[in-house]
Computed example of a mutant assay.
Amino acid sequence: MHSDERSAQAPISESDLVEIIKQRVNGGGAVPDGEVGVGDDAAVLRFDADHIVLTADAMVDGVHFLSDSMTWHDIGWKCIVSNQSDIAAMGAQPEHAVLTLAIPATTRVGDLEGILSGVIGALDRYGGKLVGGDTVSSDRIIISVSMTGRLLNEEKPLKRDTARPGHLVAVTGPLGGSAGGLMAMKEATQGKHQINADDEAQLLNAHFRPNPRVDLAGALVEFGAECAMDVSDGLLLDLERICVASGVDAVVDAARVPIEPALQRAYPEVATELALTGGEDYELVYAADAETIADVNSAQHSGEKAQFGIVGKIIPRQRTDAKVTVLDEAGREIEFDAKGWDHFAG
Rank of each mutant, 00 (worst) to 15 (best):
Met1Arg: 06
Met1Asn: 02
His2Asp: 14
Arg6Pro: 02
Ala10Asp: 15
Ile12Met: 15
Leu17Tyr: 11
Glu19Gly: 12
Ile20Trp: 02
Ile21His: 05
Ile21Gly: 05
Lys22Ala: 02
Arg24Lys: 11
Arg24Gly: 00
Gly28Ala: 01
Ala30Glu: 03
Pro32Ser: 12
Gly34Lys: 14
Glu35Cys: 14
Glu35Ser: 07
Glu35Ala: 04
Gly37Ala: 04
Gly37Phe: 04
Val38Ala: 05
Asp41His: 11
Ala42Arg: 11
Val44Met: 10
Asp48Phe: 05
Ala49Arg: 15
His51Met: 04
Val53Gly: 09
Thr55Tyr: 03
Ala58Gln: 09
Met59Thr: 04
Met59Ser: 15
Val60Ile: 10
Gly62Pro: 00
Val63Gln: 12
His64Met: 06
Ser69Gln: 14
Ile75Leu: 13
Cys79Thr: 15
Ile80Gln: 08
Val81Leu: 05
Asn83Lys: 03
Ala88His: 07
Ala89Trp: 09
Ala92Tyr: 13
Ala92Leu: 09
Ala92His: 13
Gln93Gly: 01
His96Glu: 03
Leu99Thr: 00
Leu99Ser: 01
Ile103Asn: 00
Pro104Gly: 01
Thr107Ser: 08
Thr107Gly: 00
Gly114Asp: 02
Tyr126Asp: 13
Leu130Trp: 10
Arg140Val: 14
Ile141Leu: 15
Ile142Leu: 14
Ser144Met: 06
Met147Tyr: 05
Thr148Lys: 14
Leu158Pro: 14
Lys159Leu: 14
Arg160Val: 06
Pro165Phe: 11
Val169Ser: 05
Thr172Pro: 12
Gly173Trp: 05
Pro174Asn: 11
Leu175Lys: 07
Leu182Val: 09
Lys186Gln: 11
Lys186Met: 11
Thr189Met: 14
Gln194Met: 06
Gln194Asn: 12
Ile195Trp: 11
Ile195Phe: 10
Asp199Glu: 04
Leu204His: 03
Ala206Lys: 14
Phe208Val: 00
Phe208Ile: 00
Arg209Cys: 08
Pro210Gln: 13
Val214Pro: 00
Asp215Gln: 11
Leu216Glu: 08
Leu220Arg: 11
Glu222Asn: 10
Phe223Ile: 02
Ala228Phe: 11
Met229Glu: 06
Asp230Trp: 10
Asp233Gln: 13
Leu235Glu: 05
Leu236Asn: 08
Leu236Glu: 09
Leu239Tyr: 14
Glu240Pro: 02
Arg241Cys: 07
Ala245Ile: 02
Val248Asp: 07
Asp249His: 11
Asp253Ser: 07
Arg256Met: 08
Arg256Ala: 11
Arg256Tyr: 00
Val257Trp: 02
Pro258Thr: 01
Pro261Tyr: 04
Ala262Tyr: 08
Gln264Thr: 10
Ala266Lys: 05
Glu269His: 09
Ala271Ser: 13
Leu274Asp: 02
Thr277Trp: 03
Gly278Asn: 02
Gly278Ser: 07
Gly279Arg: 08
Gly279Glu: 05
Glu283Cys: 06
Ala287Gly: 10
Ala290Leu: 13
Glu291Arg: 13
Thr292Pro: 01
Thr292Gln: 12
Thr292Met: 06
Asp295Lys: 15
Glu304Ser: 04
Gln307Met: 04
Phe308Lys: 10
Thr320Cys: 00
Asp321Asn: 03
Ala322Cys: 03
Lys323Trp: 00
Val324Ala: 07
Asp328Ile: 07
Glu333Lys: 08
Ile334Trp: 09
Phe336His: 07
Asp342Lys: 12
Phe344Met: 03
